[in-house]
Write a protein that binds this DNA or RNA. Structure first.
Lengths: 221, 221
DNA sequence: TCACCTTTGTTGTTTTTACAACATATTTTC
DNA sequence: GAAAATATGTTGTAAAAACAACAAAGGTGA
């Protein structure tokens, strides 16, 4: 476990808490670890989820597969990120989508109710932990809302442009790298990959953007 | 304030907390009240938001207006609901969308940091309040994710069908009432109103659904 | 390096949507 | 209860997307 203390101390959920404090807390929060192979499902729709999952190694996609097999990636998580926090406090704590390991992964499970309930021993950093946990969920909320912003655009070009604009703002530069390949980006924006590719070409021809692999540059208009 | 105690005790955020306890807490949480006229903006993009807003009277839409004037309704809130919780703990606590009163409204503001930080006097119900606040945000998270599910559908028919299916499941009946008029539903699903109307007609002709005003019935297929 | 596999890009066809313009209801207000 | 305002439904047309099928580029491993 000590191997991951550095990672944990850099994670959002343990931000501002010292490594030795984290170690104490882990017992208190009944932390358990499990391994997953690449491609393995961590939970699927309908599973009961009662803890927060924190990624120690690997990476995970939260995704939904519909009736007709269309896949949409709802979120892409990597080391230090948490997922599943939303379900564990709701009365019906059933997962509404799938979490799948996209690389061999190691997951730390923490009991969310214990996080949110101040313990009798009142660890000095418990307030910080509560605040952090809430902040993580808030940030997720904001990013879901952002995604809704992209999906609410009517045309593929508008979807692409609103997404790329945001990435550019995030990177504080007109030049930036996106964390998706073409198929993943198409799934994220809920459009057809080939149509998206050809739209990207057109946007480049029109001088709005230029790109090479996952590197994009927004042009002045 | 006492006038609203009944409403507050029924709200998600004060669930399980007795009316006299709530009254004590309100002082502790520095609750402030403000009135808004129908159509008035409660906050707009970029505004600094540092408290949770709870609707005592009226109703509020969280919405985004894009560059070209397209409106998308992100959420529709009514009495007892809260909004703005996500921004207030984030380091850049700037609103990323607009909150507008769609009826004359009365809003109670609560200091979120005070909610999440256990006070020195340690009110007995503070743990419950923390849990509730987290639950509210979680529920919002789940519903944003659901909306992403609808928006990720490719055709208007699929969007409508996935939304109506969920409403039906929620109502535990094939017959149910939706909380949107046509324009609002179109904005919510990010499609053109008239195109949506005609798609609804087609779906009715095809015997998939039937409807009258905001009442819908899903047909067996 | 060569065969194989994965990713990305291109093109044409069919389906669906946005948009506009208008008709018909329904609700509100005076 | 009539007029005005708002909401809903309909239709045709132009634009855009999905889909399919394939070409080209890039990576990977034997």
């Amino acid at each position: 476990m000590k191997k991951y203390l550095n990672l944990l101390s850099k994670s959002e959920i343990f931000r501002g808490i010292k490594e030795d404090e984290i170690l104490t807390m882990l017992n208190c929060l009944s932390g358990k670890i499990r391994k997953y192979k690449k491609g393995e499902y961590i939970f699927t729709v309908g599973d009961r989820v009662s803890s927060v999952a924190l990624i120690l190694e690997g990476s995970v996609h939260i995704q939904k597969e519909d009736y007709w097999g269309n896949l949409s990636i709802l979120n892409k998580m990597s080391e230090g990120d948490t997922f599943g926090e939303a379900y564990s406090v709701l009365s019906s704590n059933k997962a509404e989508n799938n979490a799948v390991a996209v690389a061999d992964s190691l997951i730390l499970y923490l009991d969310l109710k214990k996080i949110l309930t101040v313990c009798s021993s009142l660890c000095s950093f418990h307030n910080q932990l509560i605040m952090n946990t809430y902040t993580v969920l808030s940030a997720k909320n904001v990013s879901l809302t952002q995604k809704i912003g992209y999906l609410s655009q009517r045309t593929t070009r508008e979807k692409l442009f609103s997404y790329l604009s945001d990435q550019s703002i995030k990177a504080k530069s007109t030049s930036f790298t996106i964390p998706f390949n073409r198929q993943q980006l198409a799934d994220f924006l809920a459009v057809d990959r080939s149509a998206m590719c050809s739209e990207l070409s057109k946007m480049q021809k029109d001088g709005i953007i230029s790109y090479n692999k996952n590197n994009f540059i927004l042009k002045d208009i």
